[in-house]
Amino acid sequence: MKDLSNKNQLWLLIFTLPPVFYTMDLFFDKKEFTLTEFFFYMLWSVIGVVLGYLFSAKFLSKYQDIRWVKVIGLFLLMLLVLIILVVLHLTALRELQPFVSDALVLPLIVSAITFSAVASKQ
C-alpha cells in the first residue's frame, strides 16, 4: 500500500473496509440482513474511514517532524473513540438505530492507523 497515493488508499479503504466489517458483523452478531441497515452501516463506516483519513493524513502528517506526535495522535484518536462510544451508549442516541451507529468506530481506528503508518514511511 505504500506505493499508492493517499487518495488511492482512501478509495481502497472506503471500498474494502465497510463491506468486510458489515460481513463480520452479520456473521458474529447473527443479525438479519436488511437493506436499510446495510445502507446506514455503510454510510457510518465510510464516515469513519474519512474521519480517520482526515485525522491522520491531514493532521498528523503536518506535524510528523515533531517528536512523539504519533503517540500523542494515537492517544487522541483513542480518546475520541472512547468519547464517541460513551456518548452513544450512555445517551438515548443508541436507540436511534440505524441513524446513529457505532459502525464508524472501527473504520476510524483502522484507517487512521493505516494512514499514519504510511505517512511516516514517506
Score class of each variant (00 low, 15 high):
6 N>A: 06
6 N>Q: 05
6 N>F: 05
7 K>H: 00
8 N>P: 00
8 N>L: 07
8 N>H: 13
9 Q>F: 05
10 L>Q: 00
11 W>H: 11
11 W>I: 15
12 L>M: 07
12 L>R: 04
12 L>T: 08
13 L>D: 02
14 I>M: 13
14 I>W: 06
15 F>I: 11
16 T>Q: 06
16 T>N: 11
18 P>S: 08
19 P>E: 07
21 F>I: 15
21 F>G: 07
21 F>E: 09
21 F>P: 05
22 Y>H: 11
24 M>I: 15
24 M>P: 10
26 L>N: 09
27 F>G: 12
27 F>Q: 13
28 F>D: 04
29 D>G: 06
30 K>A: 12
31 K>G: 06
31 K>R: 11
32 E>M: 10
33 F>I: 07
34 T>Y: 09
34 T>E: 13
35 L>V: 09
36 T>W: 05
38 F>I: 13
38 F>E: 08
39 F>P: 03
40 F>E: 13
40 F>S: 14
42 M>H: 13
43 L>C: 12
44 W>T: 07
45 S>G: 15
46 V>L: 11
46 V>I: 15
47 I>N: 05
49 V>M: 06
50 V>M: 03
50 V>Q: 03
52 G>S: 00
53 Y>C: 02
53 Y>W: 02
53 Y>S: 00
53 Y>V: 01
54 L>D: 00
55 F>T: 00
55 F>R: 01
55 F>Y: 03
55 F>A: 01
55 F>N: 03
57 A>E: 02
57 A>W: 01
58 K>D: 09
